[in-house]
Design a protein around this nucleic acid. Sequence first.
DNA 1: GCAGCAATAATCCTTTTGGAGTATAGGACA
DNA 2: TGTCCTATACTCCAAAAGGATTATTGCTGC
Lengths: 225, 225
Amino acid sequence: MRIKIGIVDDKSSNRNILKDKLLRGGQFTIALMAEDGKDFLEKMQGLDLDEQPDVVLMDLEMPVMDGVEAIATGSFLYPAVKFVVLTIFDDEDKIFRAIKAGAYGYLLKDESSENISSMLLQMQESGAGPISPGIAFKILQLVQNNNLVMAAAREQEKKQLFNLTAREQEILKLLVEGLLYKEIGAKLDISPHTAKKHVINIYNKLHVNTRAQVINIAHGKKWFD
Amino acid sequence: MRIKIGIVDDKSSNRNILKDKLLRGGQFTIALMAEDGKDFLEKMQGLDLDEQPDVVLMDLEMPVMDGVEAIATGSFLYPAVKFVVLTIFDDEDKIFRAIKAGAYGYLLKDESSENISSMLLQMQESGAGPISPGIAFKILQLVQNNNLVMAAAREQEKKQLFNLTAREQEILKLLVEGLLYKEIGAKLDISPHTAKKHVINIYNKLHVNTRAQVINIAHGKKWFD
DNA sequence: GCAGCAATAATCCTTTTGGAGTATAGGACA
DNA sequence: TGTCCTATACTCCAAAAGGATTATTGCTGC
């Protein structure tokens, strides 16, 4: 199974060179090309699930919508898609913001294209995001210089789940993720009516009456994050 | 100029295999071998400045004095020496502590010895510490999961991401709190229609189409908590 | 066997949302 | 001056959510 690649870069020459290089080995197919973040998101909307890229190589500095914003939105809308930054920038701020936005890897454009190919293939094998050595070292230094510090160790405050049944907790999770009744039903292989019934029961137990309230409670109690 | 290497590992077989591999290419010399942290520090004391290793490959789990402690002390006493962890452990805690102690690189023992050699050489060239790809990805994930947070420049990173207007941010806050259109309108003293119009505009800018998604993004980005 | 409960499913109804328009007033900017 | 942007407000419509109620199935405990 060949890996489906998306390429987002505002320079058409960059896109085409990269595309040619990736296609050469026969291990990749190009699922999508876009010239900025907005263009990317719009083109993603037009794709069926099985047409969506496995990996998106994303430039950072682009007009209209930059790579960080595109990754932030994209990684939320398409959690299965892996976003790998491919850029010439190696400053700490860009690296940090891209990672926080959800970047799965961070490659520098001065990597040879053979290296990029092999890192992508190795990613598929090991599940570890591809990172250029120089970038990895930058991150290590961030940690070392106390620019990054361990967040307060989160205590395992046991979740008091308002005696929800197992099934209700299952539905709760999907509810918090923002799924519609019909989507919850489809996912759990039950009727949307039943899904809704469970949700209403949950509301009664939590003493609320909208999804928004449930989601806020869930985050407040750190049930799922 | 050949690179002077120090090897610290409690298993003599490990030490010797590594030594042989490194000597093979003729690019390295072995300046020091030690079997634990204490042994290492004592042997360092006995060396003249020009005999000291450029790089020390340090195992982590060792009797008497472990690698983290040896690196902490060693990097203080000998700031010119680069300490590179070479271990089988890849758990987040060990990685973090070794880096904080002053590790310049972090390599896994399942790297091939050719890889280790080439990464050490590249280090000498580029000045960037050698890091195994899997470790780099682990660190990236630490950052992503908020186990590591920016100590200093965390303030400005907060918003600004989706260019919402001031009014839209105001509405966003109430939206995330779970207010209905009519409640938002009442609070801001505008028509519920207007409140709704703003909300729809926000959706378009964030590329979503339900409140649930907005609330999740808001919590994910810690806009309000 | 039966009471109680969880899970399933459905119907009927009202309210709230989300989406697509149109329109107007006030500021900013060239 | 005219254009662009923002905030304001409205209409019409369809989809989804929320609430109340009823009913069946299967499991558990006494």
